[in-house]
């Protein structure tokens, strides 16, 4: 569980996060949604420790990041997996080397043990026969899988994904979303996903945090999001006609 309390962050004069308080729950896929520029990435990077909040605290199962010693911070970092928006695979390394990288850097495992674990997670993300390929030889969807494999290889307790399915076709996007959700359940991970894809919301939105201009404007589950009267949420979720129709149909069904 990650508890965010009153987090504020400014860049110069621009206040980007204006006091965010929420919790991201263990074993669930937690989604941060909101318009472009609402502060999603800044919030995610604050959770990751790439940005330091000006105010407020972030606690990882009780451990407040900013109050940890350097050694404890490093320890906590090894419990974090991150899937970047553009996958961020090391392009000088093969798939196998990419996935094994965190193990090689931060564990005392032998080469054979690393190989075994790497093969296991590569299979887990359904990527066979790609071990020796370079990232540039893979499709976008395959790169995402490698990024997920690298993020989970060291058994993280916390998994962060910045728009994991941007740039993918809708079908592949859903496969990736489901994969993340399955892994979250399987290993009881606290997963936080940053997205503006409504398909993801409907597919895996167990807990949704809606940001608007740096304020947490609404939170709830995917069931609740279709019923809420919160104007900002309705405005965001039903910005397209297709979704407006779905909302009508859904509400009729419920009556």
């Amino acid at each position: 569980m990650i508890e965010v309390k009153n987090v504020e962050k400014s860049f110069g004069d621009a206040k980007v996060l204006k006091g965010i308080t929420t919790t991201f729950e263990t074993g669930k896929t937690n989604l941060i949604i909101g318009q472009s520029g609402s502060g999603k990435t800044v919030l995610l990077k604050s959770l990751l420790g790439i940005h330091t909040p000006d105010k407020g605290t972030i606690a990882f199962d009780g451990r407040i990041y900013t109050e940890l010693s350097d050694a404890d911070k490093r320890e906590l970092r090894t419990e974090i997996g991150m899937v970047f928006q553009g996958s961020a695979l090391f392009d000088s390394m093969t798939v196998e080397e990419n996935v094994g990288f965190p193990l090689k850097m931060f564990t005392t495992k032998s080469a054979a043990e690393i190989k075994e674990r790497v093969n296991f997670v590569i299979n887990r993300v359904n990527l066979q026969n790609a071990n020796l390929k370079k990232p540039s030889e893979l499709s976008g969807g395959m790169q995402k899988r490698v990024a997920i494999a690298r993020a989970i290889v060291n058994n993280p307790k916390y998994l962060f994904c910045d728009e994991p399915n941007s740039g993918l076709d809708p079908k592949t996007a859903i496969v990736i979303d489901n994969l993340i959700q399955e892994i979250t359940k399987e290993y009881n991970i606290t997963t936080v996903i940053n997205t503006h894809d409504m398909n993801s919301v409907m597919e895996i939105g167990e807990k949704i945090v809606f940001l608007k201009e740096g304020i947490l404007a609404w939170e709830g589950s995917k069931k609740e999001i279709f019923k809420t009267d919160n104007e900002a949420v309705v405005d965001f979720v039903y910005s397209s006609n297709l979704f407006k129709k779905i909302r009508k149909a859904q509400n009729k069904e419920d009556e």
């Binding site: 790439i50 970092r77 991150m82 970047f84 961020a88 695979l89």
Partner: peptide
């Protein structure tokens, strides 16, 4: 391509 961020996040 965020590879440097990836290194930093890993510690």
């Amino acid at each position: 391509t965020e590879q440097i961020d990836a290194l930093e996040v890993m510690g």
